[in-house]
Design a protein around this nucleic acid. Structure first.
Lengths: 360, 360
DNA sequence: AAATATTCCCAAAGCGCTTTGAGGAGGAGA
DNA sequence: TCTCCTCCTCAAAGCGCTTTGGGAATATTT
């Protein structure tokens, strides 16, 4: 109910012009420090704050960053996504930027960008879940809308800013580690391979299979949305088959939980009977990978990289780019940690009690 | 890079006044249909869309709804929250509203509302996770900012709009159901009881304990943030104690997953040895409660109510309220379904093999 | 034919801010 | 005393839209 006081009213109260008041509040040097103090104090007292839309209109800056939340089919703002947003949001809030979310069907994403651009709704956007050769990149370029990609679209990506995890390397290392432990049948429960990051993960995994001469069995490779029941289902499937794997790589903790649940039903012990390594994005609400039985020994062995931290950094990069549009493009490739937990162990000498052909 | 075309330019191209063009596009009746068609076509061709800030400034409407994401300590935009947002976001997008998120420390939430109001950033806000006698309600009223509460702050809540699940009733029914199955030691793994919904859940649970004369043991009641490791930890704790419960109520699927993980380690079978009922918000990325071994039989027995659907409805209510500020306040109390899955069964005749005192 | 409605369109006045281009006051130097 | 700076302040012009209050055609009624 409180009257909303505007610049004119404030300047009247102070007996100053709007110009002076505006300059005083915006820290311009040509205003007397005593005047400025008076102005600031009055503004505080009257609870004056400049209208967002008036300021945007005058400056041409929206002071807002757009994020498009893909509403795939009957789906899902997934937790990876929201943790990223949490990180980015912290940075925006800190720098006085607004974060604005659009939840739309995937097909409408391009329209949203066009809308953002032509209505000057935002000063920049973050591109999530890039596909290989993602059409969004040329679109955004043609719209002249600053953007940073979380992930990459291709290898020669020099002409746009991105931040990515070295997914290929992470999966190389994890696969190699399992091979070192004697595992030869290693399953991959991957994300959707249309996503660039998922195809890199697969490349990492397969390169090691080839290099070390491990089993290459298509029935051990899966590619779907990374949700819990997915892990559950494919784990049940594999361990109902004649030749189950002795180790599993999982693209996210979510399906990893499903895997653990399935194994429990079969009486198979993670770590002891089957090794599991998951990619852990440090999702804040399930630190499965960081809390184990014994203090400081995580349950899951994991490739770890905080997606929230990535959100923070991407936001910073974007804000920098908006401040200095000609400052060149930035690229950051983060290495994931490989953290040993309780779910990895040398391959059991005796096979799991299933009708599997003994081999080597 | 494309030139951003504004109203003036569009009207010049058309040889019409800005007024006419504006009216044509905004569907005013006093404009000739043929003229309107010409205008619309030209607008489409030139990719004209009204500047958001200019429109807001002129109309006084921000066409945006604010959500504050509490950044509790080292925490978390939790999945319950983000699923709610997904639902709300769908509705906003549909009605041309922007969803704008502020990620800030809990202590700053009031400042954010003040900022929203005095800068006319938003036309309304959604209040999340209301406490009993939440200070945000009087604040928002005094700011004159329309709002809808997801949940309730007290029982005599007539003077603000809210949508809530009948948490008390849901937990009454679940507890009663377990009692019917013969369980007498029932644990409650609850959310933070500062939250109004959690205290209602506890009330429901306790009222049935009293009514049916079941064990009232404080060591079976827990109240924390609803994350996975929480469930894991307290389940381990209970089943390491001399007198574990034979049934468990869990406030969310997240800690329920932790419980299942802990039980697996103890070799205790959910359903067979211990009954579990969780509150299932239908989180879209883990439909544990809806996908079981046999098709159509869910794994978890659950009280179920879609938080995403709640998000949709709350958004609708808020938009209605903004459109008709004097239309009175709305209240909706939803009943949760009680859906039987595989994790509930009659109390085992023989006690779990732990040194427990036998008792009728 | 004149008077009244109706239809379609327009010029101009905001909305609340930032920013440009000056201008008045006061002190320093000639 | 007059001029020239520096310091501080201001009036006014946008930013791009909506909306008010007509006004010029055209159509309808008397």
């Amino acid at each position: 109910m409180r009257e909303t006081v505007n610049l004119r009213r404030l300047s009247e109260v102070l007996g100053l012009s709007q110009t002076t008041v505006s300059r005083a509040l915006n820290g311009f040097p040509e205003v007397n420090e005593r005047t400025r103090a008076r102005v600031v104090e009055a503004a505080r007292r009257l609870n004056y704050r400049p209208s967002a839309s008036a300021a945007s209109l005058a400056t041409g800056k929206a002071c807002a960053i757009g994020h498009v939340v893909p509403l795939a089919e009957h789906m899902m703002i997934n937790p990876h996504f929201s943790d990223f947003l949490a990180g980015a949001g912290e940075v925006y809030a800190q720098f006085g930027y607004e974060m604005l979310l659009r939840v739309v069907a995937q097909a409408e994403e391009a329209d949203v960008y066009r809308d953002f651009a032509s209505r000057s709704r935002v000063d920049g956007v973050v591109v999530h879940g890039p596909l290989t050769n993602d059409p969004r990149i040329p679109l955004l370029k043609s719209l002249g809308l600053p953007f940073v990609v979380h992930g990459r679209c291709d290898d020669g990506a020099g002409d746009y800013s991105w931040l990515d995890v070295n997914n290929r390397r992470a999966f190389c290392r994890a696969t190699g580690f399992l091979a070192d432990l004697g595992h030869r049948r290693i399953a991959l429960i991957n994300g959707l391979e249309a996503m660039n990051f998922a195809s890199r993960r697969r490349q990492g995994y397969e390169s090691v299979l080839v290099e070390r001469g491990l089993d290459q069995d298509p029935s051990l490779i899966f590619s779907e949305d990374m949700v819990e029941p997915y892990g559950y289902r494919v784990a049940r499937q594999m361990f109902s088959s004649p030749r189950p794997p002795t180790a599993i790589l999982v693209s996210s903790v979510l399906p990893a939980m499903g895997v653990v649940r399935a194994l429990a039903e079969f009486g198979i012990r993670p770590g002891a009977d089957v090794s599991i390594i998951a990619f852990d994005d440090c999702l804040s609400f399930l630190q499965m990978a960081s809390e184990g039985k014994a203090r400081d020994v995580p349950f899951l062995t994991a490739m770890r990289s905080s997606i929230r931290e990535a959100g923070r950094r991407v936001a910073e990069m974007l804000l920098e780019q908006i401040a200095a549009p000609d400052g060149g493009r930035r690229h950051e490739l983060w290495e994931a940690e490989l953290v040993i937990g309780e779910t990895t162990a040398p391959r059991p000498v005796e096979q799991t009690p299933l009708p599997a052909a003994a081999k080597s």
